[in-house]
Design a protein around this nucleic acid. Sequence first.
RNA 1: GCCAGUAUAGCUCAGUUGGUAGAGCAGCUGAUUUGUAAUCAGCAGGUCGUCGGUUCGAGUCCGACUGCUGGCUCCA
Length: 579
Amino acid sequence: MESIETLRHSAAHIMAAAVKRCFGESVLFDIGPATSDGFYYDFDMPHRLSTEDFPKIEAEMRKIIKADLPFERLEVTRAEAEKMLAGQRYKLERLADIPEGEKITFFRCADFVDLCRGPHVASTGEVKAVKITAVAGSYFRGKETNPMLQRLYGMGAATQEELDAELARIEESKKRDHRKLGRELDLFSIHDDVGPGLAHWHPKGARIRVAIEDFWRKEHFRAGYEMIFTPHVGRSKLWETSGHLGFYKDSMFPSMTVTENENTSDATSEQYFVKPMNCPFHIQIYKAHRYSYRDLPLRWAELGTVYRFEKEGVRHGLLRVRGFTQDDAHIFCTPDQIENEVREAVQFALRVLRKFGFTDITAYLSTRPGKSVGAPERWEQATASLENALKSEGLTYQVDEGGGAFYGPKIDFKIRDALGRQWQLGTIQFDFNMSERFDLTYVGEDGKEHRPYMVHRALLGSLERFFGILIEHYAGAFPLWLAPEQVRILPITEHQHAYAKELLAQLRAKDIRATIDADSEKIGAKIRRAQMEKIPVMLVVGAREAEAGAVAVRRREGGDQGVMSAPDAIELIHKETQA
RNA sequence: GCCAGUAUAGCUCAGUUGGUAGAGCAGCUGAUUUGUAAUCAGCAGGUCGUCGGUUCGAGUCCGACUGCUGGCUCCA
């Protein structure tokens, strides 16, 4: 039995062979690997592929599968390979990548012979089921300056049942999509009338946000942070000093011109920008005062709303927006404190993410990018200290070469969405640059002025993105402490409305978020509605319960707890909401 | 920004070869007072994303723009 990767990779070759049959010798081939749930192959050809071509290509693929053609492995010399790939410019580039001395192999499948390391299934008949799922543009070697190739995505399996199951699984995971749940559960919306990528939090979404923020603030005070609040706009000079205008002008919202003393001879105009980052403001607060080494580290946090003019084609629900609130903080410290501060920030980030039930967290270490500032030695030193923090926490991490910010290297934490795509949440960024630019100092033990180091960090990243991921993580069924509506009281008839109101008052007195469903519906309909709204606790009250001062507890997850006395039930729910 | 799709009522979707819109759910009103995932009836709701073109006539065909979807690139 071949591995699923091998099977998918072979399916990619079958697709390429079919494309060659359909579109002839003008097709230029790149590569076609297996992916986490299927495969793709990149082509360049005069014909523009579209969904209308899929049936024709699939039919040709089935013919190749039905013929059960063998995958033949050929080992050739470099000169022979170059001859075989004559005219195939992408393939020739790929061939040049193969180091001298390494074996050069081709695989033949039908009339398609491809430069390929393999392995492959023995013959095309092993791939029983295939489906072309999408076509997309893709730059050669992933570089924007290279030509855009046409990428066909497909799925393949050893049986039709397996393929159907895989398709069903993808369909199923789409039900957890935060954009769908956000609408169904009335959590948030984005309006074209306002502008793309600008999120509106509805009351139920806002309830959750407030619960997150309350938790967040409490944890920050405990960890030795102070809260600050800063403005939303600032003079262009500020952004020049910070370097943002130089590095990110294209992805900032355009400036607004502010004219003072209009219609007088003293009239002056200048540019203001909406903030894409909070750091320059936090730095101003630092500059408002003179600090000594005894005052450091200073840890200042802000839920700071920033705006970034993200390019078209990159927006995605709440996960990529143009206005968002960072759970930002800046730590100002001495050089010998920074390693410890970074380590504590890593621990803090993990502690907070785990509170929300995230365990599958991938850490990335991003190093010096092409466009950067600061001496190379400092970059090396800073990168090493980030790496030490990751190691001392026993975290496995991947290195993103050249992925750092212009002012320093960083650690990112990424989490997958419902469709398996990774999104960056928390980030911890080393910065030895801003304090220089803004001429920040502290007085050291020696009585002289020194440069503080800065750490930029966000644990959740942005509240918008975090909320989007959180919705998908819980599939909309938020745990009790986050649920916008924690308890719904369901009277069986109108006669229990007075009793229901008493219960409601008692629940609210304990800060439990509760409502009554007073509609003249049957109990089954009320339960269905509460269930679909994913409300964690339902309290059914009929004549029997009202009589006995009791409630019939029903849980969203099932696990009926039966009838309890009302005070016992309220106490139990109260305890659970505190957990 | 690039490639491919897509846009009909609040939501999910029908709408024949072009003849000026329809369902279910949600909403509202009334009846019903019900025991663990949908009670019944009625009413209301749409310049068919926007602009332009073809046509006697466009939701339907063509073009542009905008949004959205899936990718690529990017994400301080």
